[in-house]
Simulated assay, not measured.
Amino acid sequence: MDQAATAEQGSPLLQDQLCFALYAASRAVTARYRPLLEELGLTYPQYLVMLALWDRDSVSVRELGAALQLESSTLSPLLKRLEAGGLIHRERRADDERSIAVRLTRAGSDLREQARTVPAAIGEAMGLTPEQDATAKHLLRLLTANVTHG
């Protein structure tokens, strides 16, 4: 590791902190999503839930929480709001009364078509090449795994 990189890791300066770069990037990206998602009637966390359900309808709350890396106490209010909005339905699983299945309603399924333009709009706003996009995702997943399991 070179001397400049070592100095930055121990630097007390805000602009040298990886945590701040992640925080600022996350806020900027989430803010860019906001107007696109308002047209769909969704918040960013609700959009993430819908993405997970569009990928795989009928999942347990536990599976959904694991996929989104959310605690039940955070996920439950999101699901209640989506259910009140007519986008999902929750019901006890027949094969396991302790487990609750989350399913898309017709309106929830139909919303997927309206949301198809969101990823491209965000991708364009980010301005990354396909290689940079893949590298960024790889590094962020690695960082998450390292911090979570380290």
Rank of each mutant, 00 (worst) to 15 (best):
G108V: 14
E83C: 00
V118G: 11
T74L: 14
L78P: 06
T117Y: 11
E83T: 07
K80V: 15
L79K: 10
A67N: 08
L111K: 15
A67E: 09
S73R: 06
A115E: 12
R116K: 10
L111A: 14
R90N: 01
A84E: 15
E83Y: 00
A121F: 03
V102C: 06
L104P: 12
T105L: 12
S99R: 15
R93F: 00
G86R: 05
P119L: 07
G86V: 01
L79G: 07
D110R: 15
P77T: 02
I88M: 00
L104A: 12
S72T: 15
E113I: 07
R81C: 05
R103A: 14
S109K: 14
S76G: 06
D110C: 10
E71K: 13
A84I: 08
A115P: 08
S73D: 07
E97I: 13
P119F: 01
S109V: 10
E63L: 06
A94T: 10
L75C: 06
P119S: 02
T74F: 09
G108P: 13
Q69D: 13
A121I: 08
G108R: 12
E97A: 15
L68K: 01
D110F: 03
D96W: 00
G86H: 02
A107S: 15
S72Y: 13
L64W: 03
D95T: 09
A115K: 09
S76V: 10
I100V: 12
L78K: 11
V102E: 06
V118I: 14
R62G: 08
I122F: 03
P77N: 02
I88W: 00
L79W: 10
L82E: 03
L75S: 00
L87I: 02
E91L: 02
L87G: 02
P119D: 06
D110K: 11
E63P: 00
